[in-house]
Design a protein around this nucleic acid. Structure first.
Length: 309
DNA sequence: CATCAGGAGCATC
DNA sequence: GATGCTCCTGATG
């Protein structure tokens, strides 16, 4: 998938996907019914072929596969009854080596999750570039708001609502409730509100990333692979199923899902062809430099930072 | 078969 | 030149 640029690919999947309040309860169902339209009802979880197909529509449809509120994860067909560690940020689940059917389901779910997040972020990024606006709706000028409205209306075939939101800046827009959206735009106001929520949550989680102590996106310097790995390790809440510490003090970590880690790295570096073979080659370049090494007892997919934090 | 190790050429900054 | 992407051969469990 991905050619998302470094900026938006910073967003943590967990922040988006684990916020059912935003994604599920603020009109996504209605978004599907009202905007996505009958021709898109039979979405299967595969990425849209073209931007014009509407990546957010894909996102919305994916969520709508399990539309009741509550835990989205639990709605996955035949999903494991095992508790997901979603509410315990520090918990790093250990993936059983004997993969059961249920853990396989979890894996495919994770793939869908990260895929969806990637597509949504790409969607937002595309819009930002196209419209020359920032990803954070709070920063929008009234002109930016109008651009965003036009774009969203066009993407989801909503009736024009620009006039109803004239003179409103991004801050005011963000402060508005779904009800207020509906008052101003009886047709599609709820959908616009739902989309704005997605943008808001995307930019919020992006800020979360830039707070990271090893994050390099502020400095403008290209991120190093070892920094990226540390970033993932710092966010077990979001990435604990892909990569986790075995011994944080010694800097020993295990890549649990090599394909996902490589994919995330590829997204970050805008290298869609990235895979674990290449990523691991880059890790091995660190051997000589004394940044990463294999631990004393070598294990598959286990590496060690030479200078743990 | 996936992973690991490392050589080599190349692009980018 | 540093960094990492890409492709490669060969080894290993």
């Amino acid at each position: 998938m991905g050619s998302a640029s470094p900026g938006l690919s910073n967003v943590s999947p967990g922040c988006l996907l684990l916020s059912p309040d935003v994604a599920l309860r603020t009109g996504v169902e209605k978004a599907e019914a009202g905007a996505v339209g009958p021709e898109k009802r039979d979405w299967s979880p595969s990425p849209p072929a073209t931007p014009e197909q509407g990546l957010s529509a894909f996102y919305l449809s994916c969520f709508n596969m399990y539309p009741e509120d509550g835990s989205w994860v639990a709605k996955v067909p035949e999903a494991s009854a095992r508790e997901e560690p979603l509410d315990e940020p520090e918990q790093c689940p250990v993936i059983d080596s004997q993969a059961s059917a249920s853990s396989l389901d979890e894996h495919s779910l994770e793939q869908v999750q990260s895929m969806v997040v990637g597509e949504v972020l790409k969607d937002i990024e595309t819009a930002c570039k196209l419209l020359n606006i920032t990803a954070d709706p709070g920063d929008w000028s009234p002109g930016n708001v109008q651009k965003w409205l036009l774009w969203t209306e066009h993407q989801y075939r909503l009736p024009p609502a620009g006039k109803a939101f004239q003179e409103l800046g991004g801050k005011e827009l963000c402060a508005m409730s779904e009800e207020q959206f509906r008052q101003r735009a009886p047709l599609g106001g709820d959908v616009l509100h739902a989309h704005l929520d997605i943008w808001k949550s995307a930019s919020t989680s992006e800020e979360g990333w830039t707070d990271g102590e090893v994050d390099s996106s502020c400095s403008g310097q290209p991120i190093h692979l070892w920094q990226f790995l540390k970033e993932l390790l710092l966010k077990p809440h979001s990435y604990g199923r892909f990569i986790r510490w075995l011994n944080k003090e010694k800097g020993i970590f295990k890549i649990e899902d090599s394909a996902q880690v490589a994919r995330l790295w590829g997204v970050r570096k805008n290298r869609p062809a990235m895979n674990y073979d290449k990523l691991s080659r880059s890790i091995r370049q660190y051997y000589k430099k004394g940044i990463i090494r294999k631990p004393d007892i070598s294990q598959r997919l286990v590496y060690q930072f030479v200078h743990p934090v």
